[in-house]
């Protein structure tokens, strides 16, 4: 089904949608909203189909025995996160067409796609650890998406708060939700992301114990994940116990800091090949590193792409 779709298709769709969002700051054009929404919608649809194709091939194809379905690699993981962010933008833009949500969400979706593209030839996740590994990956994915939403809302809060403080008009050019609405959006992201990262951390430990017989504390991703979890836990706990800590701009600064923490963690994880069959520099029980050329999924895609039509 639509096997000619590539990451370039949906990256371009989101980029065009973002450019149209940026142009809203400068001039009025009645049809722009529909076009912008159309591009974002097409992007989400194409990415969904692309993802489904990869999933189907993995689940039923020759790669089924080697790579787990779903999040098979960091490439898939980044793409999935980007898809959720883009889909969230689409929903928000439909519900509230006046606001410039795209300026805050689409760059993150594009950044995730770019990271995915950069690591597309990296090794795949191990196939022998579907249960814990998959839970670990899914929890971290969901946690990441929630932190990204919190960050977008926090950034919007800080921008809106700055404009209001400076007496800059808020009903022309950049249009953002009210501080109250943004605050309501930020607050639950703490508790949800703490729970998700906590579960992610626990399942990661279980995965490590099952596979290596010990928790690999030497892995920098493990301790940055733990630190991120502790940070989120502390922020949630302090917010619960001391109300002023989650009022106004303070809460926005905390979610922005959480995002930077997360960005550091994801970068480390991706660069070190965390979760891959054979992370760089470690002698594990796997059958050796798998490059893009030898990855059955990529090979299947390559084969499809080369098929004469």
């Amino acid at each position: 089904m639509l096997t000619g779709i590539s990451i370039v298709c949906f990256f371009t769709s989101y980029a065009v949608s973002l450019l149209l969002e940026i142009s809203r700051l400068f001039f009025r054009a009645p049809v722009r909203y529909v076009v912008s929404l159309g591009f974002a919608g097409i992007g989400v649809l194409l990415q969904g189909v692309y993802f489904a194709n990869r999933f189907l091939i993995r689940a039923g194809g020759e790669a089924a025995d080697v790579v787990p379905p779903g999040l098979g690699s960091w490439y898939d993981w980044c793409l999935a996160a980007a898809w959720f962010v883009a889909a969230a933008y689409l929903v928000l833009a439909i519900r509230d067409p006046q606001k410039n949500f795209g300026l805050f969400l689409l760059p993150i979706a594009l950044l995730l796609l770019a990271i995915g593209w950069a690591v597309r030839s990296g090794t795949s996740f191990s196939a022998q650890t579907v249960s814990w590994g998959t839970i670990h990956g899914l929890m971290l994915l969901a946690g990441t998406v929630v932190v990204v939403f919190g960050f977008a809302a926090g950034a919007m809060y800080l921008v809106q708060s700055y404009r209001l403080k400076q007496g800059i008009r808020t009903q022309r050019g950049l249009r953002l939700p009210s501080l109250e609405r943004l605050h309501r959006a930020i607050e639950p992201t703490f508790f949800i992301s703490t729970a998700l990262f906590g579960l992610g951390l626990l399942s990661g430990m279980a995965h490590s114990l099952a596979k290596y017989g010990a928790i690999r504390w030497g892995d920098p991703v493990v301790w940055t994940s733990s630190a991120l979890f502790l940070w989120l836990f502390a922020a949630s706990a302090i917010g619960l116990l001391y109300r002023p800590a989650r009022e106004g701009r303070k809460v926005a600064y905390v979610v922005v800091a959480s995002f930077l923490f997360l960005f550091l963690e994801v970068t480390l994880a991706v660069l070190s090949g965390h979760g891959s069959e054979q992370p760089a520099g470690e002698d594990l029980r796997s059958n050796g590193p798998r490059t893009a050329a030898s990855d059955p999924v990529e090979a299947t895609f390559d084969a499809i792409a080369e098929k004469p039509r």
Binding site: Q160, R163, L164, G167, R169, T170, Q171, L176, P177, S178, L179, E180, R181, R184
Partner: peptide
């Protein structure tokens, strides 16, 4: 009210 108060409070 329209330019500032509404940007602080949703309702």
């Amino acid at each position: 009210v329209s330019e500032f108060a509404r940007s602080v409070f949703e309702s």
